[in-house]
Design a protein around this nucleic acid. Structure first.
Lengths: 344, 344
DNA sequence: ATGAAAGCGCTAACAC
DNA sequence: GTGTTAGCGCTTTCAT
């Protein structure tokens, strides 16, 4: 027999399709008498019946599916986020589509079009830029959506992020307490909230500490990658900038800082300390083990999923955002000041 | 206006829905005159029409979706595989659902049920065990499916894998040429083709080299993880087994070997060499950089997707499997023999 | 080449 | 509490 339908179940149970439908849906089960419920359930069980989701979606306009947009799944911060979201959504009866955009607006539009064609109920964006017309337009037209990890410049769009400013203060304070005074910053791309907020917090905290933080102490990366970090710190190094520690926009950039240092015969942490951000998986295993700021990507994903489901159930509550507190993880890449970046 | 339907497009173009449908589907476009085609396309464009996939799926029984089953997305070998599959499937008009099973049969059944409810056209399994009743049953009932990375014991089910035996020979030959003669193996779980075939190749190749490879030189891991590797090699070490090199079932196990060695005051590669398998992302950054066997997970994913689409288009061709050749990557964790595992 | 209409499987509104 | 039925948006067969 082909895949059984409601009609098959109804016939076997000796009831009508409508009744079978009611018995087989959580929400309408209470409309059915206990005896018929039993009969329908037994028939469904015997036949191996499962809902045809396309038919249900067509009828109800609800698919129990959510679309998740990622920059690139091979960036190790994203898999835990996806799992966090998937684990909570699965338990609530949702499935998740994922799409990688590689930061490309075309690919993002295409992915959203595909999700829309499939009638997803809502969206989780891990791809937000501070200025993101596409997301803003979707929000304006009341599409249920939640941002994760990165947020928009405007604060009304619901987002689950970590406290970038506080994390940066934690990192900087650690370096300060180790005795560092000459500190530079290698910033992530400034079109993202993470890039901007972390850098701003660095500049502000340096001032608070009475330390210099002019533009000559801040390098900017074109991407959240080791290669970009290597290049950016390389420029600072080659310009002769003197410093004993560097704070990196994230761990991958921090890895690039290791490279730039090594290429110039400088040792980390003996000569120069480096602190990363994110506690990306495997950062305890790199050389040297990365001192960093931990944010739980898994939790970020979980909370984003919960928030989205909240919004799906009560659209008027789409005014909430969530901020998770990060934590300092002390490993080996930051130590008391050494010789510094420029040998005497 | 709500999401426009074919009816809206047809009205605007002054044709009937059937005609609009024909014009808007690749496969039936040729049945429509050029002028009406133009009108329909213009109307669709103007209205921002996109197909309602649920309706189409309901009608055609085809969803242009495939389900991909993974053990655990946070194991870094999987994200590239997913991207490989997704990148080729996207270009062919397919979307992909992913589900993590954590090696749990219940979760796997549930994921498959969910995929089935959503009428996926086919499946990519990265979760295959040598003996896998669920997959075998699906194959028996002609469900289009492809295995990736791991295969079944039987060879008729289509799979895209790397040549585990050859990769192992490559690794072992490298150690042999460095001068190692006392070599142990830390095997992955034997219920997977990767675990079994790699171990068997080790034993066979050692024999071919005239080297001892009894069961006392092989440790077994309960999982593909650093923790399991650490424990397994630890047992060998604590039993007083003497060796100068270890070949690990995969890189994560190799990482655990680093740990076991370090905990006992042994240095890698000065005292003991370690070779991994997979060239998992970031293995060039761990300490010491891992000498390993590279298999392109991205390519594995691509080829699995291509093979699945082949099968979808020509079910009678589901008798093909694909084997990709691995390659040795020399880094630092293997060097000429040192003091060995037991100091004199 | 196009129109007309049936029907995919399901839910929900309505009737009893 | 259960039966009946319309119709979600689409494709496709059958007419013309």
């Amino acid at each position: 027999m082909q895949r059984p339908t409601l009609k098959d179940v109804a016939e076997r149970a000796g009831v009508h399709v409508g009744t079978a439908s009611r018995a087989l849906s959580e929400s309408s089960r209470h409309l059915v008498s206990n005896t018929t419920l039993g009969k329908v359930l037994a028939a469904a069980q015997a036949l191996g019946y499962t809902h045809n989701v396309s038919a249900r979606t067509l009828r109800t306009e609800r698919s129990s599916a959510v679309g998740m947009l990622l920059p690139d799944l091979t960036n190790p911060i994203f898999p835990p986020m996806v799992r966090g979201a998937e684990d909570v959504l699965r338990d609530l009866g949702y499935s998740v589509w994922i799409a990688n955009t590689d930061g490309d607006a075309e690919l993002e539009s295409a992915a959203i079009a595909s999700f829309r064609q499939r009638s997803v109920d809502g969206y989780i964006f891990a791809t937000a830029r501070l200025d993101h017309p596409l997301i803003e337009e979707m929000y304006r037209t009341s599409t249920p959506l939640v941002l994760v990890n990165r947020r928009l410049a405007r604060t009304d769009v619901p987002a689950v992020t970590s406290d970038d400013a506080h994390g940066t203060v934690l990192a900087l304070t650690h370096l300060y307490e180790l005795g560092h005074r000459e500190i530079v910053y290698v910033a992530g791309p400034q079109e993202f909230s993470t890039g901007l907020h972390r850098k701003r917090a660095f500049v502000q905290s340096m001032k608070d500490l009475g330390l210099p933080a002019g533009p000559d102490r801040v390098a900017h990366c074109v991407a959240w990658s080791a290669e970009a970090g290597r290049y950016a710190l390389g420029e600072l190094l080659d310009a002769g900038r003197r410093f004993t520690a560097v704070l990196a926009g994230n761990d991958l950039i921090g890895l690039g800082c290791f490279d730039a240092l090594r290429e110039r015969g400088l040792s980390c942490p003996a000569d120069v300390s480096v602190v990363g951000f994110d506690d990306t998986p495997f950062m305890d295993r790199v050389a040297p083990p990365m001192t960093t700021i931990r944010i739980s990507q898994y939790e970020l994903g979980q909370e984003a999923a919960r928030l989205l489901v909240d919004i799906l159930n009560a659209p008027e509550r789409r005014n909430r955002s969530l901020i998770l507190a990060p934590v300092l993880v002390v490993r080996c890449s930051a130590a008391p000041p050494g010789r510094g970046s420029v040998p005497p």
